[in-house]
Design a protein around this nucleic acid. Structure first.
Lengths: 200, 200, 200, 200
DNA sequence: GATGAATGAGAGTTCATTCAT
DNA sequence: TATGAATGAACTCTCATTCAT
């Protein structure tokens, strides 16, 4: 018997709730200290139900890492590498990135874990790594564009991109308990310097 | 009857071995996936012996995090904030830091974990945080010195220091599997830019 | 979906079985030499199931000590302190007590342990002590009644009650391996003497 | 090389100290919760030394139970079953017993344990049981003597003796935390009633 | 004789996962 | 689909005992 629309809807909602709670808990307490029972409780379902929506704990973790990527990736990639005014574009991009990074703390802690234990979480890491490469490549393009237009110092664009993503992730690690966006904003100019923006 | 010197020596050695193995495993597999039994095996002792040298697993972890700090801290702080040629001093400092960060990968992964779960590892985090503050403060001094001598752009020295340590830790996270020091060296100029070093 | 009635019934039964086996083993071998694994085996369940019914070993022990009290207490208190014929009532009471004490050997050994280590088993002891006080008080009333009616020697009723419960528990300790009720019956007259029953 | 007298003396002393501490701890915390390490610490010796004086933990426990018996037994048996004035003798005996029982609380808790787990502590129990039989027999003789002289009610002397020792041990269990000898003294008359002493 | 490092059997407990209801 | 009882692998930690010094 096919499920009614409202049923399907309800199930989607439930899955979503579980995933959200799982993300928060995985991020806060790590993989091992997050138990299925706790996630279930926080989600208002029986722990048996978690297995209805996710094959096992590993899959739940994988989903918690990879699915938000679908949401964040487009936002992070939302800039134009061929912009006419690359410095301006860069500034806007950095401001946006910083805003995003300052706000999705929990998820990024998850990301840091996956990177830290990339052997343990090989599949999830592969996804993140793939995005990271795409991300860096696109940033690199914009940097190159900026250099070609004489707005940025000449330096290896790929390294600059890596330096930049490192800076972002490092900020997230260091400012672990500071969701205060105003403080985060202070770091935009530093990112610009990293890119070799000419200081007039 | 007191223990003989050689006895004491042997014990020190054994403790050291256990701690080293523990550090490696904690860094590689995290706190939970590192079992006392595995550490013992890797160290060539019975698991009971681990408890001879460390009260419990938590203490072992704490020691693995805090003791190396005694070794690394002086090296990281080995620069002169009042140097006559601040830019030169800064460059040397960065080069040294990058070299150190590129080489003690395992330990830094441990550090990232502690920061990531600072609630879980509160005591260890407190130690790291204290060092981080000292570290940033001293870097900030050198930056200020550089600004006063007109060698660096004027910007908030504290933020610059934070940006720098974030950059370092972010590099360590991103370049998780690259001990290749030559690649790391490429990032020295970027750090200099972060500090607002004037590009002639 | 709630559990079916038969399910609930089965669980109650299982809990009961575990508790019974635990009581027997705690009584026979003491707290430490009674392992969860042994209790589980004796109860025909996996050791994990013991934790489904009891939070931990301490709780299991507590339940083994306290729950039977609900059963035995009413039986031990089943006499009338204001009886018209106090000596007769006393005799019946003693006979009943002796019968009960002779039969629930295992449980009483548990009780003796709790008293012996009342620091270790503080909560369980508190429960037993509370009952003991109630028990002695009610016996004291009957004794007083008997004295007032001139059937018993005048003596401190509270001490008499304590002497009596001591006698009972002492018999249980001494006759550790004698469930033989006939032998136990022999002690009824001694208890009566303790109460100062006048020997005509 | 033979040991000097003073050395022998010192060792005897050390053994004594260990045994005393062991008795106290076994009595207070039971066999399992009393560790060799704790006993050693309380005795001011290394735990290795405990094994110099006692083969193993079981032997230590055995010694703690049996050796004091050599001290207490003569005191408990110090009465004349053929006394000319049996009631008087009985009174004196009871008074002495009560005094002794009120004072050596820790040791008696040990005794209760051994009786409670006589399977576990079979050898120690055998010693205690043997003494108990001797003890009861001698008391029985005095009771019989009293009956023959018409001072005591006629009743089975052996049961009377058992009732009496039960009463004593029961008091010890019930008054676990009352070393207050004055309260203990109150129970002498009750013991006399147990023996069927004629109340004038 | 005295010491305490080394060992490992064995205990309690957690928790992912299965599966009957 | 939802539930939670049942299971047992795996982990940390304790402690009696051995034995080299």
């Amino acid at each position: 018997m096919a499920l009614s629309d409202s049923q399907v809807q309800k199930m989607k909602q439930k899955r979503e709730t579980i995933l959200e709670q799982a993300t928060l808990m995985f991020a806060e307490h790590g993989y091992n200290d997050t138990t299925i029972a706790k996630v279930a409780k926080a989600s208002g379902v029986s722990f048996g139900s978690v297995f209805t929506y996710f094959e096992n704990k590993d899959q739940l973790f994988f989903a918690a890492v990879v699915e938000p990527l679908q949401v964040y990736a487009p936002k992070l990639l939302d800039f134009d590498p061929n912009a006419r005014q690359p410095t301006q574009e860069l500034w806007n991009m950095v401001a946006k990135h910083i805003k995003i990074f300052s706000s999705f703390g929990p998820y990024l802690r998850l990301v840091v874990q996956v990177i830290g234990y990339h052997n343990r979480f090989a599949e999830a890491f592969a996804e993140l790594d793939a995005f990271h490469n795409t991300f860096r490549a696109k940033i690199g393009e914009l940097v190159k564009n900026g250099q070609e237009r004489g707005e940025l110092q000449i330096q290896d664009a790929k390294y600059a991109a890596t330096a930049y993503t490192s800076f972002l992730i490092g900020l997230r690690v260091n400012l672990i308990d500071s969701p205060d966006s105003q403080m985060w904003e202070q770091f935009v100019p530093f990112a610009m310097q990293l890119f070799g923006a000419k200081t007039d």
